[in-house]
């Protein structure tokens, strides 16, 4: 073919059709070929250095011994080393001391978010805003006291307040009158408040007692917020009639804060106490 090429001196391959239609041979530029072979070399080197090939018994490990898990663990260790300086300090301190230390309390607020999210947020909401049947942690109305020690104790020991169902003691009319007085923020205006023994738990002034975990009935903040479509008054009546955690009354409200003392470490509880205290209602 080549000897009778009608287009001598041209870089055609000798494949010619229809007299003049021909295939030219234009190889890629040299620098392009250099780059091509360099990338092939790169690929080979990568395969030697890093995990690359699946085999029947696993995969090639690469001479660098690199693995994703190692990389991850290295990253975690780096974070831990930053945390360590704070963590060791917190270990030897009481929750109150952590709270008083601006650097440590800032660290705790930033880091305990995860602990709170894992253990507390399901009931109390991610920002301590509470949920139906679960108390708000961001306000300053505390059933068992709002000092850092109180909060720490609540988390570690748990709480289970009891209010007997008063449906048997009080008539519907009496419950109605009492509920209205409570809704108005003035429970002591109802003589039954003293006569029927409410004061035993809620105090002479109706402001509750932290030792018993009884609610303050004067401040407009309610442990049991009305359910959807229910009025506040009905909700108060229900609580009085059926009580809280009263085992003799099947319709009684349930209110249990589990004890976290066994589930979480002392330091974690310390941190959670600081975190909750910092929601804005700590005392």
């Amino acid at each position: 073919m080549a000897e009778n090429n009608p287009f001598p001196g041209e870089n055609n391959t000798g494949h010619i059709w229809d007299d003049n239609l021909r295939e030219l041979s234009n190889p890629p530029p040299r620098w392009w070929m250099i780059a091509f072979w360099a990338s092939v070399l790169w690929w080979v080197a990568y395969g030697v250095l890093y995990p690359m090939w699946p085999t029947l018994s696993g995969n090639t490990k690469g001479v660098m011994g690199w693995s994703q898990m190692q990389e991850y663990e290295k990253g975690v260790a780096e974070v831990e080393s930053v945390r360590a300086q704070f963590e060791t300090q917190i270990e030897g301190m009481s929750a109150a001391e952590v709270l008083a230390n601006p650097g440590l309390s800032e660290y705790t607020v930033a880091s305990a978010k995860v602990l709170f999210g894992d253990n507390c947020a399901a009931c109390h909401g991610s920002g301590g805003q509470g949920n139906a049947g679960f108390p708000v942690l961001a306000d300053d109305d505390w059933l068992y006291g709002g000092t850092i020690e109180n909060i720490e104790q609540t988390i570690s020991m748990g709480r289970k307040g009891i209010m007997t169902a008063h449906g048997k003691i009080l008539s519907d009319g009496e419950i109605d009158t009492m509920s209205k007085a409570i809704e108005a923020g003035n429970p002591t205006s109802d003589p039954n408040f003293t006569q029927k023994g409410c004061i035993a738990c809620h105090g002479m002034d109706g402001k509750g007692m932290a030792v018993l975990g009884s609610a303050n009935l004067t401040d407009g903040i309610y442990r049991f917020m009305p359910a959807e479509g229910e009025s506040l008054l009905d909700s108060i009546k229900y609580t009085i009639k059926y009580g809280v955690n009263d085992v003799t009354e099947p319709k009684s409200r349930e209110a249990v804060m589990p004890a976290f003392g066994e589930r979480l470490s002392k330091d974690d509880i310390k941190k959670l106490a600081v975190y909750v205290h910092k929601f804005g209602g700590g005392q």
Binding site: G125, G127, V136, D139, G220
Partner: peptide
């Protein structure tokens, strides 16, 4: 402005924002 909760009722009758 804190979103959760948007506001909190305090025992002295004030509304608190964070």
């Amino acid at each position: 402005h804190a979103r959760q909760p948007l506001f909190v009722l305090q025992s002295d009758g004030t509304i608190q924002n964070k």
